[in-house]
Design a protein around this nucleic acid. Structure first.
Length: 895
RNA sequence: GGGCGCAUAGCUCAGUUGGUUCAGAGCACUUGGUUUACACCCAAGGGGUCGGGGGUUCGAAUCCCUCUGCGCCCACCA
């Protein structure tokens, strides 16, 4: 047939993707076959494909295609996530460019803009996945804010609330002043920052008569100018100070007990309290307490009934408590307040100090601890089945690699309640409806109509109508919708008995990054047990981060992330897939290097050329099958089966790189390097039909096992090899059947290949061109399969193989095990050089023999080592002895 | 501060219960080869005291201790 001499990936890839789509191979519906299900980790709806996605989705596609070839009903559900903070931030920024302030819009107006944005950019990333070859069931594409998905989220919220697991509380939460919303603990990233430690003097107020005077206190008059010094990293928060705290065991400060201090600038009087929480070693051992702006201080405040003064606005500028500093940003105020303190003469000193500050995962803003009313989910009980499922004795969910089990355990065992409310508009609005101003004056229901009914019951006021109710303005945390993903994509929350959820759930594998182990993976497990009483997936494959050659994380800001689509254009999707998988063990970071893609592309080219070769052959049924072809095909079949077992083993352990490398070597070395070279007819000679058919059958097997990794190229060649009906496409072909492996044949071939290598070495050393046929004699001391002689003869370009019993004189020699081979040379042999070479080989072999014999004469070794080990050592000994014999006799004949 | 993990060839990594798949793979490198599928090729070759030190054992890359250097996760010390 006519085929292009060069493989044109770009046109081929789009052609076959369209073909697959047209014939609906990706679409799955429940049937009698075993299901194989993956739900995609939904990328941010407005995101674009980056290297992490490419790796992650390539792995998923390999798993899905492999399962499909194994005859399973493969279903890969794609979709996107609304990503509340990230998306809302983008929309706000875009509106700002247009001169629109979010605060001037109503909720509905803002949401209209957000939907517009989503529809414009949403799904771009899914189109990019198609370029990668992802065989997702696009008919099932979901978005976390689809109506049915949102309905499920609300249903779950109401249910958890009714179970008493969701509550509203006034708590210290993580406030992102930039996004102006709270964040869960998991969304806060602690970073080391260099800051200052400010030492500030507070004047001590003498005790008043009404409060009594301690027995041991110094006389009143001595106290007038007394100060105490505290250390703080945040001088601007002194406006919120409501106490000074000392450690009761600190002898330096016993005289301060029960007294009061005056806060500089604001000149408020605050008590000096005692608590063992204070570290005697740190700073001055005195602590200022700001309950509104620090979690520890809040705890102290609760314990000691302190006043709470919130000094910040939502954007972290000082409010009226900040006096003349009102309106200043917290970081600006930190400087100006310090200056003012210095001017007042109460700033004792300033030291540099490194401390950890919480930052927002999304906006990178420094988190401000802030007290506010938020919604929380009680985690303590929910978490129990999730711990059991992964770490229990009968663990149902496996993590790959296993090392993440520790991380998982640590998080779950120390879990705190989950703050699920966000002060955002983009997301599911919390279904709580207020009917009064009281903290408890609300009901939770799936609709306002139901809410009215509940409110009527609760208040005993039958006059209430929907217009008396106000829905909570907060939205839910994005993860509160994505934690339901494996269930909600099959409508398993709203319709728990539907066919899809019963068939596809639990899903098989989840492929994602360890960075969202807590955000998402753990929570899906929690939700799965709560709502299906069953695990959401069997296995979790955690990929590593994609880094550049300098080990830097790939990121937009560093500009070190290659353009994913350009890579595909340059190296083909198949090439990029291979490049990504060549070195990416589960959980290990991947040092990405474009040359890996080049290698992938090169591999594709190699296979294309192999096909091109077979295609150039003229097939004849008039000639016999050569002996060499017959045995080589038998060998390759054994080799293929051997590799197949290895490959399946790698798949079962999610060692996809290893599986790919096994296939790579099988095709590159064994198929192209050996088999094709052996069966290749002489120039312009035809090939016998029997060999040709067998070779093509083996070629097809190769394509099948490579298909999950390089779907396009393999399908293309598959369709060239024969006319195929849509039912016969490679994508739905049958994975090669495992057969018994002829290990004997494999080792016999290996021996033959060593002989061939020996011949090649001699040719190289003596500059004998390959096209010159040479004579060849052998002394066979080993049992060898002479069927391979034809192979040796062909690849060594030998005139013939003669068996002799005595060393051939005037010949170059080499040995494989105890077999000796002779290549007669025209003209004089450099006898001296040969003797030196042989002597060295003898010396080495004798040394080797000695070490083996030493081991065998050690009684404790013979007594202690297993039978097999000793047998092996004895074999080594006899092999070495036989080899020494042959070397010695060769030496004798030379001398 | 607590926990976990890693260190093997120039690079990226395999190496399961200690002993023949134990010192490996791919890439890179060196040398030679090209009218006969492919220079995106073929062949041959060099290269590692398995991070340092100590221990257990007949035997250690593998088990134990220790030191060093990295990485990750968690954490409320101002």
């Amino acid at each position: 047939m006519d085929i292009p001499s060069k493989y044109d990936a770009n046109s081929v890839e789009s052609k076959w993707y369209d073909y697959w789509m047209k014939h609906n191979y990706f679409h799955s519906t429940p049937d009698e076959r075993e299901p194989y299900t993956i739900v995609i980790p939904p990328p941010n709806v407005t995101g674009v494909l980056h290297m992490g996605h490419m790796l992650n989705n390539t792995i998923q596609d390999v798993l899905v295609r492999h399962a499909r070839l194994l005859g399973k009903n493969a279903c890969w559900v794609p979709g996107t996530d609304h990503a509340s903070i990230a998306t809302e931030a983008k929309v706000v920024a875009k509106l700002k460019e247009q001169g629109i302030d979010k605060n001037d819009l109503t909720r509905d107006e803002f949401l209209a803009h957000a939907w517009e944005w989503t529809e414009e950019y949403g799904g771009v990333i899914l189109e990019q996945l198609k370029k990668l070859g992802c065989s997702c069931d696009w008919d099932r594409t979901k978005f976390t804010m689809d109506d049915d998905m949102s309905e499920a989220v609300i249903k779950v919220f109401v249910d958890l609330h009714n179970k008493g697991l969701i509550y509203r509380g006034y708590r210290m939460v993580n406030w992102d002043p930039e996004a102006q919303t709270t964040l869960s603990d998991e969304e806060v990233i602690h970073e080391e920052r260099q800051g200052n430690l400010y030492y500030i003097k507070y004047k001590i107020l003498s005790p008043t008569l009404s409060e009594g005077k301690g027995e041991n206190s110094p006389p009143l008059e001595e106290l007038e100018e007394e100060y105490l010094t505290i250390a703080t990293t945040r001088p601007e928060t002194i406006f919120g100070d409501t106490a000074i705290c000392i450690n009761p065991n600190d002898e330096r400060f016993t005289h301060l007990k029960g007294k009061k201090a005056i806060v500089p600038i604001s000149n408020r009087v605050v008590p000096i309290i005692e608590d063992e929480y204070v570290d005697l070693e740190f700073g001055t051992g005195c602590l200022k307490v700001t309950p509104a702006h620090d979690e520890n201080d809040k705890n102290l405040g609760d314990k000691h009934n302190l006043e709470v003064i919130d000094i910040f606005n939502a954007d972290a500028t000082l409010n009226s408590f900040g006096l003349q500093f009102q309106g200043q940003d917290r970081f600006e105020a930190r400087k100006t307040v310090a200056k003012e303190l210095e001017a007042l003469g109460v700033l004792v000193k300033t030291e540099t100090h490194i401390n950890k500050v919480g930052t927002s995962e999304r906006t990178k803003a420094v988190i401000e601890p802030r007290l506010s009313d938020q919604w929380f989910l009680k985690m303590e009980d929910l978490v129990k089945p999730a711990i059991e499922a992964v770490l229990g004795e009968n663990a149902e969910i496996k993590l790959f690699p296993k090392k993440f089990e520790n991380t998982y355990r640590h998080w779950l065992e120390n879990i705190r309640d989950w703050n699920i409310s966000r002060q955002l508009l983009w997301g599911q609005q919390i279904p709580a409806y207020f009917y009064g101003d009281g903290k408890e004056d609300f009901v939770v229901a799936e609709s306002i109509e139901k809410a009215v009914e509940l409110a009527k019951q609760k208040t005993n006021n039958q006059q209430l109508t929907t217009s008396d109710l106000t829905q909570d303005t907060d939205a839910l945390d994005t993860w509160f919708s994505s934690w339901l993903w494996p269930m909600s994509v099959f409508d398993g929350i709203r319709n728990p008995e539907n066919e899809d959820i019963k068939y596809y759930y639990p899903t098989n594998d989840l492929v994602t990054g360890p960075d969202i182990l807590f955000f998402w993976v753990a929570r899906m497990i929690i939700a799965g047990y709560e709502y299906k009483d069953e695990r959401p997936f069997n296995n979790v494959y955690l990929t590593g981060l994609v880094r550049d050659k300098q080990r830097r994380k790939m990121s937009k800001s560093l500009g070190n992330s290659p353009d994913a689509l350009k890579l595909i254009k340059d190296y083909s999707a198949d090439g990029v897939r291979v490049g990504l998988l060549l070195s990416s063990a589960a959980g290990n970071d991947l040092m990405f290097d474009e040359t890996l893609c080049q290698q992938g592309k090169g591999f594709g080219n190699k296979i294309w050329n192999a096909f091109n070769l077979t295609n150039l052959w003229e097939v004849s049924d008039a000639i016999e099958q050569p002996q060499s072809s017959k045995i080589a095909l038998e060998w390759y079949e054994a080799k293929f089966q051997d590799a197949l077992v290895e490959i399946e083993d790698h798949f079962s352990k999610y060692r996809l790189s290893d599986a790919l490398m096994s296939i790579y070597k099988l095709i590159y070395d064994d198929f192209c390097g050996w088999l094709l070279e052996i069966v290749k007819p002489a120039y312009q000679q035809p090939i016998d039909v029997k060999t040709y058919n067998s070779v093509m059958a083996r070629f097809e097997d190769n394509l099948k096992i490579l298909h999950p990794f390089m779907p396009f190229l393999t399908e293309d060649i598959w369709q060239y090899i024969a006319e195929r009906t849509p039912e016969e496409a490679l994508i739905v072909a049958k994975w090669p059947e495992a057969k018994p492996i002829n290990k004997e044949l494999i080792s016999q071939f290996e021996f033959a290949s060593e002989v061939i290598s020996g011949i090649r070495t001699v040719r190289k050393e003596k500059n004998i061109a390959f096209k010159d046929a040479i004579g060849f004699s052998a002394i066979n001391n080993e049992k060898v399969n002479i069927a391979f002689d034809a192979v040796i003869s062909k690849l060594g370009n030998l005139e013939a193989i003669q068996y002799v019993s005595e060393p051939v004189e005037g010949a170059l020699t080499f040995r494989v095990k105890s077999n000796e081979y002779f290549i007669p040379m025209e003209g004089a042999i450099d006898v001296e050089a040969e003797i030196i070479k042989l002597s060295e080989e003898l010396k080495y072999t004798e040394g080797f023999l000695k070490s083996v014999q030493k081991k065998l004469s050690n009684e404790r070794f013979v007594a202690g080592a297993p039978e097999q080990v000793i047998t092996n050592e004895r074999k080594k000994e006899s092999d070495a002895l036989a080899k020494i014999e042959t070397i010695k006799s060769s030496l004798a004949s030379l001398k």
